[in-house]
Amino acid sequence: MHLRIFGDPVLFHIGTVPVTETMVTSTVVTLLLIATAVLLAYLATLRPQHWLSLVAFMIVESFDNLVTEIIGRRHTIVSTLAGSLFLFIASCNIAGQLPGVHPATGSLATTSALAVVVFLSVPIAGIRSNGVWGYIKHYFRPNPLLMPLHVISELSRTLALAVRLFGNIMSGHLVVGLLVALAGFLVPTPIMALDLLIGLLQAYIFAILSTVYIGAAISAGEE
């Protein structure tokens, strides 16, 4: 067997650009997600009584409520970001349960890409909400000496975000692979169920932590 921890096999090249397996998987997941979302939105707009449109209402409403609870007011852009994060990560994790599919979130490149997107969203949201000076000022509170700690905290939490997701998904996948190699067929089923739960939980946590970070930046100048 081949244990894959950090490596990513290159399937083919488009010109000089290598296309890895993770890229293909995440593209397929993204396209499926967009298709489903467009179908749900179509149903929700035209047939609000359909049960699928009720599912769509539930998803949107729950994310809006979550963001409202965390930030303290309605914020549709943050809600959209959190919802997209959750849906993408959860879809990737569930797709990882399929045989022969390596989850896109089990690659450190993907999780760090998501973490960096969140890391960049934080100052953007803070500046949009409080202005440039208002956002930068909060790094020097309560004491200018604490500014390096703020910066380190932001970097480390981004790192933690990326590595947490990567470690959880990768280790779950690894354990399942080891059990399949050692014990055989159907034995790792309970571990796969746990893996499914952990995957959804990690998606939820990623979305919530992103919301918390962005919410903290938005309400930074309101002390």
Binding site: A160, V163, G167, I205
Partner: peptide, 16 residues
């Protein structure tokens, strides 16, 4: 859940 995940992330770091 958030706290559990954050604490567990240290164990995950160790695993990594």
């Amino acid at each position: 859940f958030v706290s559990l995940a954050m604490v567990e992330s240290t164990a995950i770091f160790c695993l990594v």
